[in-house]
C-alpha cells in the first residue's frame, strides 16, 4: 500500500505540473486581461498536434518540440490580434460565446487538417523506459521528465515575474489594471505578450503530454475544467497560486481516485465501489475548492476579492 501511495504521489505531481503549465496562462489572461478564455484548452490540443506533426516530419521529438515553439507563438499572436483583442471591452458573456465558438472552429479545423484518427508521438529515446523505484515498482522516465520540465518552467516564470520589468508589469496588471494603464504602459502590447505567453505555455503542456496520450480532438476540453478549478483555488492572476493550486488539485485527484475505491471496496462490491469512488474523486476536488473559497474567498493568493 505504501508503494502505491508513492507511485500515486508521483503521478499526482506529474499531473500537477501539467495543470500548472495550462493554468499559468489561463490565470494571467483572466487576472490581467479580464478575459474568460474557454479556448485555452484548444491551445493545449494544438500544441500536441504541432509536436506530432513536426516530430513526424523531422523524425525527432526534440526538433518537434523546438519547432512547436515558434508555431505556438504565431498561433497565440494571431488569436490575440484577430479575436481576443476585440473582446477586452466586451462582457464576460460575449467572451464566453466567442471563445466557445473558437473551440468548435478549432476542433473542426483540426479534424479537417489532421483527420479524425488519433495521432501518436513516439517517446524520445532518451526518456523511454522506466526506472526502478522500490521493490518491483517502476516509474516511467518520461513522466519524470515532465515533472522536471514543469518545475523548470515554474522556476523560470517565478524569476521572470519577480525580478524583471515585464514581471513587475504583470504583477501590477493583475492588481490594478486601470492604474497600470494610467501610468503610461502600452497596455495593448502588454496584453498581447500575456496572451502569447499563456498560449505558448498551454501548447508546451500539450506537446509534453503528447507521447503519453493519444493526440485527439477534444483533448483540450477534458483538461480545461480542472484548470479552471486550479485558477480559482490559486487565486485569479497569481502564478504562485496556480502552481500550488495545480499540485494540490492533482494530488487530491489522483490519491482520491485510487484510495477512495480501495477503502470503499471493503464495504461495497467492486463495480459499485469503483462507481462511488469515481464519483467521489472528482468531488474531492470541488470540496477542496469550496473549503478554500470559504476560508479565502479570493483563492490562496488572489489579488482581488
Amino acid at each position: 500500500m505504501a508503494n502505491l501511495f508513492v507511485l500515486q504521489l508521483l503521478n499526482g505531481v506529474q499531473l500537477g505540473v501539467l495543470l500548472f503549465l495550462i493554468a499559468a496562462g489561463l490565470t494571467l489572461v483572466f487576472g490581467i486581461m479580464d478575459v474568460v478564455n474557454l479556448a485555452h484548452g484548444v491551445l493545449y490540443m494544438v500544441g500536441a498536434y504541432f509536436v506530432a506533426t513536426f516530430a513526424a516530419l523531422t523524425g525527432s521529438f526534440w526538433w518537434g518540440l523546438l519547432l512547436m515553439l515558434p508555431a505556438a507563438i504565431a498561433v497565440g499572436l494571431i488569436l490575440e490580434v484577430v479575436v481576443i483583442r476585440r473582446l477586452y471591452a466586451r462582457s464576460h458573456l460575449d467572451q464566453v460565446l466567442a471563445t466557445f465558438g473558437l473551440v468548435m472552429i478549432a476542433n473542426e479545423t483540426v479534424k479537417i487538417v489532421w483527420g479524425t484518427s488519433p495521432l501518436s508521438v513516439p517517446t524520445p529515446e532518451l526518456l523511454s523506459g522506466s526506472i526502478p523505484l522500490m521493490g518491483p515498482l517502476r516509474y516511467p522516465v518520461y513522466r519524470v521528465g515532465i515533472i522536471v520540465a514543469g518545475l523548470a518552467v515554474a522556476l523560470g516564470l517565478f524569476l521572470v515575474i519577480n525580478y524583471t520589468r515585464i514581471g513587475m508589469l504583470l504583477r501590477a496588471g493583475a492588481t490594478n489594471r486601470a492604474m497600470v494603464s494610467a501610468l503610461g504602459v502600452d497596455i495593448g502590447k502588454l496584453f498581447a505578450i500575456v496572451f502569447t505567453l499563456g498560449a505558448v505555455l498551454a501548447c508546451f503542456a500539450g506537446a509534453l503530454i503528447a507521447p503519453i496520450l493519444s493526440v485527439d480532438t477534444g483533448m483540450g476540453e477534458s483538461v480545461l475544467i480542472l484548470t479552471f478549478v486550479v485558477v480559482v483555488i490559486g487565486g485569479i492572476g497569481s502564478i504562485k497560486g496556480a502552481f500550488l493550486g495545480a499540485i494540490l488539485v492533482a494530488v487530491v485527484d489522483t490519491l482520491g481516485g485510487v484510495f477512495g475505491p480501495i477503502l470503499l471496496r471493503e464495504v461495497l462490491d467492486p463495480s459499485a465501489a469503483n462507481q462511488t469512488g469515481r464519483m467521489l474523486a472528482p468531488m474531492l476536488v470541488y470540496i477542496l475548492m469550496a473549503v478554500i473559497l470559504f476560508a479565502k474567498p479570493a483563492g490562496l493568493f488572489g489579488a482581488k476579492a
Binding site: L4, Q8, N11, P270, S271, R278
Partner: peptide, 24 residues
C-alpha cells in the same frame, strides 16, 4: 487481483497502472 472500472473516455491510466504494478 483486482477489478477496476474506468471512466468512459479516460486517457490517463497512471492510477490504474500504479495499482497493477503494486498488486503484481
Amino acid at each position: 487481483a483486482g477489478e477496476v472500472f474506468t471512466e468512459m473516455g479516460q486517457l490517463d491510466f497512471s492510477s490504474e497502472l500504479a495499482q497493477i504494478a503494486a498488486f503484481q
